[in-house]
Design a protein around this nucleic acid. Structure first.
Lengths: 346, 346
DNA sequence: TGTCAACACGAAAACGTTTTCGTAACCCAT
DNA sequence: ATGGGTTACGAAAACGTTTTCGTGTTGACA
């Protein structure tokens, strides 16, 4: 077992100084052609690679990006990570991942662990608990220490930083317009409680779309599900809720759901009630994940371009890290959604 | 913007030496009660946190685990990551993620980037390309440099290291036995080409199960799909292949698929051919992901306990890192599978 | 022969820690 | 007064780099 070789060891072997070795390897012209070749040959032979930690300490930057997300077993978030990783690697950065698990304290702890030198900046999406408690001190502190943050998807106005968000409002409007265009007269929405900003916005989009088409929104057609129900354990409760929605409103001919699970589950319930999709009821879901593509019938969705979000977030952060000037000029990038039509609409 | 404070700055402010500050903060009894309190108060006030990079350099360990996986937008892998992250955090480690994207060169590059000091050890699953080329030099080199590796799921006998694998063989057997028990006489398998070790093992399990039940395997019932077809773009090709399988073998009454997508797609094709599930044909898939739970009908699957694999892998690695003794005693942990019965079987 | 530049290299500082060792200053006992 | 043992602190090395600066040697030139 041969440990990694260091400059010092090379220097000792070749009977020169550490400085000389370092310079030789970096092709400094302070070093004679002779020694340079000798050193480089030796280094190659022993497969010398500079120690990243030492470099980080010296340069006071780690070339590493910290990602904090609420959950990784989630199509959207893993696609974002892939996007981040893609451009990060291309630009010479590594990616270190922390999971908040939707918990405020884990978010704080994770950020503190990483903020002490391990990374150069954060890309994150805020946990639900943090959003509820509205306690954002860990973000402000991090930013105050000179460590840039880019937020994506679940963002918050109170914090001044770069942001990448989905155009939730217009995405929802597009979806609802499509349903109307396809002939739906009574469109229900299955959404979450309002404190999740994206749920709120999507609901708002639904309402605005109806209003613009002079359709009166009815409270009975709005189902606000406790979002803990996305977790697999509570599927039956969710199904029950949706069944109630359908039986109480026999005239529903279109459903807009703010996520895939709700949409798929609603389709399932509809079929159980002998409603034909899309003939009797049409469905559109937000978030284009695996489920939509493989559902029966395949689900028409509003795609969020998650990977593109990750790429953009990474570019914003790295630009920020590598720009010299201190003038803070934060931007909020809006990623447009795209309606992907499949078989759950006519 | 106040940058992070260092020992040196505290020392200067309080007019003591750096050593004193360090000792005071670590409650050394070399330091008088007086100065200790003074230093600690000051440190608290300025929210002092030791710089991780400096600690890493000093201790020659980073308390960080490197994960290399082929793909992150994948239920199985993200669940494994969650498991790793869970125990890693609990034991004071961070997790840094590299994606090989199923490419040999990206796997090598990613490992080299991380191996130069950034991490203490690897947890990885080998990329398909690497498995095809059978070039494992980067693994041996890493291990030779004293950096431990734990492989999971896609492992390889040639490399001596800790491994965590699924009991693919018995999992498949269980599934096929179940189909036989439920009355299937003509069981088809939809699998991948053999170079993916797990595909190979699962096929073998299928064959062994049939043999044990004195059922003669028929080549026409074995569909080996080019595994590039899992990617969403080639769904139609996959469907076509499966359709051919069904039409050429009208008597198929059971299907075992080595992954979720194959199973779901096969169910879809079956229904298109007016076969009832599970009355006419029963289905079992390997890998218990999101799709299975939300398919119609819900899919009976062989669950791999992905998160548990991640947890085990992390425990193995950290044990290895924190144990003093050099004696290498590698183990291969087999995670048992579990058959989850849903509506695609009678 | 003396001066000066160019050349080739080494010493040392710096990044932020921890830890070993040395040592003043004090107290107590002889 | 001398010696020995605490106590409380500081100096310095070490981790592995990069970079600035200093310096000895050479050769050319007047």
């Amino acid at each position: 077992m041969k440990r990694k070789i260091t400059l010092k060891q090379i220097a000792r072997e070749l009977d020169v100084s550490i400085s000389t070795v370092s310079k030789a390897l970096r092709n400094s012209n302070e070093i004679s052609e002779d020694t340079r070749q000798k050193v480089q040959a030796f280094a190659k032979l022993y497969n010398y690679r500079p120690n990243n930690i030492a470099l980080s300490l010296k340069n006071r930057k780690t070339k590493t990006i910290g990602i904090i997300i609420p959950e990784i077993v989630h199509h959207f978030f893993s696609k974002v990570i892939r996007g981040i990783e893609l451009v990060a690697n291309k630009r010479g950065y590594n990616v270190i991942v922390g999971l908040s698990n939707e918990s405020f304290s884990k978010e704080v702890i994770n950020m503190e662990m990483l903020a002490n030198g391990s990374i150069d900046g954060f890309i994150l999406s805020i946990s639900k608990e943090t959003l509820q408690q509205q306690d954002y001190h860990h973000f402000t502190e991090t930013i105050n220490q000179g460590m840039p943050i880019v937020m994506f998807d679940r963002v918050v106005n109170e914090i001044q930083c770069d942001k990448v968000i989905v155009d939730d409002l217009n995405g929802s409007k597009k979806a609802v317009f499509k349903l109307i265009e396809k002939g739906c007269k009574n469109i229900a929405i299955i959404t979450t409680k309002d404190y999740v900003s994206v749920g709120k916005l999507r609901t708002q989009g639904y309402l605005e779309a109806l209003e613009e088409k002079q359709i009166k929104a009815k409270g009975s057609l709005i189902l606000k599900v406790d979002d803990a129900l996305v977790s697999d354990d509570h599927l039956e409760v969710l199904e029950k809720d949706i069944e109630t929605l359908f039986t109480a409103n026999k005239n529903i001919d279109g459903v807009f759901a703010v996520n895939e699970i709700y949409a798929i589950t609603a389709m399932k319930v509809a079929r159980k009630l002998n409603l034909r999709v899309p003939e009797d009821v049409q469905f559109i879901g937000f978030t284009d994940g695996v489920l939509s593509k493989h559902a029966t019938p395949t689900l028409t969705t509003v795609s969020q371009h998650a990977q593109q979000m990750g790429e953009k977030a990474a570019d914003l952060l790295i630009d920020n890290l590598e720009i010299e000037e201190e003038e803070e000029h934060y931007q909020t990038v809006v990623i447009e959604t795209e309606l992907i039509e499949r078989d759950s609409t006519k």
